[in-house]
């Protein structure tokens, strides 16, 4: 599902964020991406989401070679990846409902379908009663769950999360991780960047550890 083959990423300032990275995740895997800050975790996720392109090497996601993907296809490609961010990236002038509905509106779904699926996603993350609220009225944990609902609302086969529990206390973090597990159990490939060692050491999933842009031994 996620296949890195000798991937290099060098930034214009000559900083090499990834050097010769190779690894694979199979369909339906759940894995953590760890490493010290600056090890290349964010860069790796950006390559998968095609926010950046690799300098060398192949990134193949769901049998698509991202190096060959023309620019106009990128939006359609991104629709099969759910993205969860540390700072949620919610739109603060829109209700919870509208935030979660955004990927469906973009995909051109009809009104009825949007309502149905947004409520299903909000139900899943336990926020069904708050669809009319503005994000600002929610707690940090709740905002993150809105972000997750938005990431899964159009049922992408891949879910990427960049430090999703970075700003949350351990208990809330645990809840968020359980949510990810639930999505993984229904077949979604889940890949989570996190430096919360204590939390992920308690969970029985594969860990991909980066060190200076390479896999650590």
């Amino acid at each position: 599902m996620i296949n890195f083959n000798q991937v290099y990423k060098r930034y214009p300032n000559q900083h090499e964020a990834l050097s010769g990275l190779s690894f694979q995740l199979e369909r339906g895997d759940m894995a953590f991406l760890t490493g010290h800050s600056g090890a290349g975790k964010s860069t790796l996720l950006k390559l998968i989401a095609l926010i950046e392109r690799s300098t060398h090497g192949q990134v193949i996601i769901n049998n698509q070679n991202l190096g060959r993907m023309p620019k106009w296809k990128i939006p359609y490609y991104r629709r099969m990846i759910g993205l969860v961010f540390q700072d949620h990236n919610l739109l603060h002038d829109r209700t919870v409902f509208d935030n979660v509905a955004l990927p469906l509106i973009i995909a051109g779904e009809n009104h009825r379908e949007i309502g149905r699926r947004v409520r299903a996603a909000l139900d899943k993350v336990g926020l069904l009663g708050k669809e009319r609220n503005l994000p600002i009225a929610l707690s940090g944990g709740e905002q993150q769950r809105v972000g997750i609902a938005r990431a899964v609302v159009n049922r992408p086969p891949i879910l990427l999360a960049d430090e999703p529990t970075g700003n949350l206390d351990p208990e809330l973090s645990q809840e968020i991780m359980q949510l990810f597990e639930q999505f993984n159990q229904v077949g979604v490939t889940v890949f989570i960047a996190s430096h919360d060692h204590e939390l992920i050491s308690r969970m029985p999933y594969r860990r991909i550890v980066l060190q200076n842009g390479k896999l650590a031994d």
Partner: peptide, 16 residues
């Protein structure tokens, strides 16, 4: 700008 960034990240086309 923030909204545009989010729209693009969740798969919004330039036309959108």
């Amino acid at each position: 700008q923030a909204e545009i960034r989010v729209v693009k990240l969740v798969g919004g086309t330039n036309a959108f």
